[in-house]
Computed example of a mutant assay.
Amino acid sequence: MSLFNSIFGSSDEKKEKLSSVNWIPLQLMGQLDELIALSNEKPVLIFKHSTRCSISRFALKQFENEFDLHNQVDAYFLDLLEFRAISNEIASRFGILHQSPQLLLIKEGKVLYDASHSDIQADELKKYI
């Protein structure tokens, strides 16, 4: 390794690592009914993310680094810029204020955990599973 790479890192090291979370893309309005029904059997997460926002990107990466509930929940990922209507429907159905980034835990058809920005914590989420 060259001195330059040892100080600044190689370009390979700077590439974002793949997520440890097995995200299910939330892209269709009908998926909301499916995930609400599924929440009666297993808790469901929804991570609402703005792909243009550095705060949202930081919150997402921080959550992914802390997340270790792989088999205990199904995790859905909502790109707010492409699917804002779905986000609006989530806010309407569950009576919650839209925020970005935002993490919701749905269990038995109800939101048990709702956090946004720096309040999104995987350890805090565990209390509601």
Rank of each mutant, 00 (worst) to 15 (best):
M1G: 10
F8P: 05
S10W: 11
S10A: 13
K14M: 15
L18N: 05
S19W: 01
V21L: 09
W23S: 00
Q27V: 15
G30K: 11
Q31E: 13
Q31D: 10
L32Y: 06
L32M: 02
I36G: 03
L38W: 00
K42T: 07
P43E: 14
L45P: 05
L45R: 08
H49A: 04
T51E: 11
C53V: 10
S54Q: 12
I55N: 12
S56K: 00
F58K: 12
L60W: 07
K61C: 11
K61L: 13
Q62R: 15
F63N: 10
N65C: 14
F67M: 02
D68Q: 14
D68R: 03
H70F: 09
D74P: 02
D74L: 05
D74A: 05
D74M: 02
A75W: 02
D79Q: 04
L80S: 04
E82K: 14
F83A: 00
F83Q: 07
A85P: 02
S87C: 11
I90G: 09
I90N: 03
A91S: 14
R93H: 08
G95A: 13
S100A: 13
L103V: 01
L103C: 01
L103T: 07
L104I: 11
G109H: 04
G109F: 01
K110W: 03
L112Q: 07
Y113Q: 05
D114I: 05
D114A: 00
A115P: 04
S116W: 14
I120M: 09
A122V: 09
D123M: 07
L125W: 08
K127G: 01
